[in-house]
Design a protein around this nucleic acid. Structure first.
Lengths: 344, 344
DNA sequence: AGCTGTCGGCGAAGCGATTCGTCTCAGTCA
DNA sequence: TGACTGAGACGAATCGCTTCGCCGACAGCT
């Protein structure tokens, strides 16, 4: 392995000069700089990451904690992770992959050892067990998601409450008065995953405001589970004329089941979803949906972190940054069938 | 930050003693060890990762290169990544997340700088551009996937050729003589992604042996794309009685389209897939399938790497380790309708 | 009693960078 | 002409840990 000292010797300068050429923190004459650059090139020099981290106490590594469970929004999670890695690289950082399984201790480990300078957390629960670590003299951190009390924390999230509200508004505007919500798997709510509960709140609040009846049912993924939930919904509320789906694995099964039971979308029943665009556009009926801006979330999370790390005084411009949801109307939503009309 | 020296002072021993307590590379009396452990505990000491890497020239980090594109097998990719991270942790290693985008230079960067000791590559193309770097005095590496020439490389993969063969055997055994294959998106083949082409070869070879006609069509994901491909297949080969699907986003659309066009599965048409179990079981008809053992692949990749790193002489027990595919018969495959029978 | 061997522990030399203080040498200005 | 200034380069200390060599002490053996 070629070291900085060898480069210095090869270029006929001192080690510190080479270092300053690399970092640019002190002026170096053009001639010298060129010579050093040549030597670096010729010798194929690469600075030793560990030595660098030791001397500068900056590892240039960000830790990313992804959920271990893969029971929801899998493509979104991967897309966020990839966006984080890509954006971090663009800023000269690398990304360390942590699984949620390890919990708070992993955060202590990687930051306490200087392995990572900062962390990005995904899959935030309302009362997340990792939060105490972050608040107590924790490392710079950004959460992708929002806990119930974000005081003193740095969050980036889609405004899921607004997304829920948007869905209800859209359907109410079309004339729907009975809406059913097919949600994530029960386990997701049991864990109090932030985005699921916030969406629900958004849905409920706006429904109340607009005088719309709302029925929420968690739902496991897959055809059979959806069939069961759907049957029970129609049983309980025969007049439901619209569905809001927040469960990517339920979208296509729902469409298939409605079709099979003789309900046309959107003529008889409307369906809208909160899901990645890919799911919405690839479904058998292009579904009106609120997209989940995965890339944007990942990118912003990193950028907030970089900005924070660049701030020398360690101040934290904490706060929640909510992305405004957008509803794209496609082919699955329309006015309800006229009441007690011939179609009934 | 607490340093080893402070721990030593607190425990009334020398720094080297603390180090040996930590590493266990030299005998330490029980009394001393206890004292040191207490001090470590009390002071909350955590070894500095950079310093450690510098002194020992071992970073205890494995780099994992995941595909940037998210156009295929997304859940599988994430599952592998998570399995890699989990297994690595169990062996005391951390995982650095690299995206395929950076290509060969990223490999040089992270290993040349001592950031990572070894790498795991995913999304292997038959003539992968990263291979030269690995062969030429490269770092220890394991590929999840197989290139066309795996000489001198360490690979872990599902035996996709066998998986293809298995599918054909199953269908031929049931009596099918005309099979259509709905494959990955055209781009996947254009990139010469190993698993896709190998599956195809397995399918074709066994089909030829068994005297079965085979028609292969790449297919983008989503309902409309599948509809188009399906129409053309039936146009070209009206007697097709079975489908092999290697494209997780095509499974459910295919089932829906068959149903809609009045073909019952499996009475009129059989469908089997090479896909994650979750997709197969959650479909509207439980699909007979060859599973993709994502976790197993990730786990084995790490274990091979760890074994390799533990070998002090640097010898590489290179070779391809192929997992044997297993076909799970579910509800979507059965004998073809009797030829020219009343059903026609 | 003397010799050897082991166990347990210490000290110091790195590992490969960064960074601060310092020195030199021109060029300037009075 | 001499003091001042700033640019450009150097040297040395430092970061925190690992590891090799060595030493003291105690036990076992003849």
């Amino acid at each position: 392995m070629v070291t900085l000292a060898e480069v210095a010797r090869h270029a006929g300068v001192s080690a510190s000069t080479v270092s300053y050429v690399l970092s640019g923190r002190r002026p170096i004459s053009d001639a010298t700089r060129e010579r050093v650059r040549d030597s670096i090139e010729q010798l194929g020099y690469q600075p030793h990451a560990g030595a660098r981290a030791l001397a500068s106490s900056r590892s240039r590594i960000i830790a990313l904690m992804v959920p271990l469970r893969t029971d929801m929004y899998v493509p979104v999670m991967l897309e966020i992770a990839v966006a984080v890695a890509t954006t971090a690289r663009a800023h000269g950082y690398d990304v360390l992959l942590l699984t949620g399984e390890e919990g708070p201790s992993a955060l202590r480990r990687v930051t306490g050892s200087g392995l990572a300078e900062a962390v990005i957390l995904m899959d935030i629960h309302l009362d997340d067990e990792r939060l105490p670590v972050l608040r107590a003299a924790g490392p710079p951190a950004v959460l992708v998601g929002t806990p119930s009390d974000p005081t003193g924390l740095n969050c980036v999230d889609l405004d899921f409450a607004a997304a829920g509200a948007l869905c209800v508004e859209h359907l109410a505007g079309l004339g729907h008065r009975e809406i059913a919500v097919i949600g994530e798997a029960p386990g997701v709510y049991a864990r109090h995953t932030g985005f699921a509960e916030r969406t629900l709140r958004g849905l409920r609040d706006r429904a109340a405001e607009l005088g719309v009846r709302l029925l929420h049912r968690p739902c496991e993924g897959g055809h059979d589970a959806v069939a069961g939930v759907l049957a029970r919904i129609f049983d309980e509320r025969p007049d439901v004329s619209a569905f809001v789906v927040q469960n990517e694995t339920a979208v296509e099964p729902l469409l298939a089941l409605l079709r099979r039971t003789g309900r046309a979308v959107p003529e008889d029943v409307s369906v809208i979803a909160v899901c990645p665009d890919q799911i919405a556009t690839q479904a058998s009926v292009a579904v009106s949906s609120v997209a989940i801006p995965a890339q944007e979330l990942g990118r912003r999370a990193v950028e907030r972190l970089i900005a924070r790390l660049a701030r020398p005084d360690g101040t934290d411009a904490v706060g929640v940054e909510l992305l405004v949801p957008e509803l794209t109307v496609r082919d699955s939503s329309g006015p309800p069938p006229s009441r007690r009309g011939p179609g009934d």
